[in-house]
């Protein structure tokens, strides 16, 4: 459901399945626990396996952006699948420079 790997201080979280308010709560806790422990210089959120997402997924990205800023790291969102492009466009996240 959620696979997290770290290499050279770059942490990559592979998200999959359906990202709604229910699942985002669980994912958020896992990612925050690991970033606080390992303090990576970059967190990459990989959306390639996400089949469905609502604005909770955008909230997840915004919250991790803040979290990474607090520890002096960067956030990148990678592999946004075509069916989620509309939602990301609406979100205005592009202005933060976090979208690949």
């Amino acid at each position: 459901m959620l696979k997290i790997q770290s290499e050279n201080q770059v942490m990559t979280a592979e998200l999959s399945g359906e990202l709604d308010h229910h699942r985002c709560a669980v994912i958020r806790k896992k990612i925050d626990m690991l970033t606080e422990q390992e303090r990576p210089r970059m967190l990459r959120l990989d959306f390639s396996g996400v089949q469905f997402m609502d604005s909770s997924g955008i909230g997840l990205v915004m919250g991790r952006y803040r979290q990474m800023s607090l520890i002096g790291g960067k956030l990148m969102v990678i592999n946004i699948p075509p069916h989620l492009k509309n939602l990301f466009r609406l979100s205005g996240l592009g202005a933060l420079g976090v979208l690949e």
Binding site: S55, M62, G63, S91
Partner: peptide, 22 residues
Amino acid sequence: EPLFTTGGEEQAGLGFTVMQNF
């Protein structure tokens, strides 16, 4: 309004924006 939320930091405040666009 886009980005308005009373739901705390983890809410994007985009619920109605998404509904209106979709």
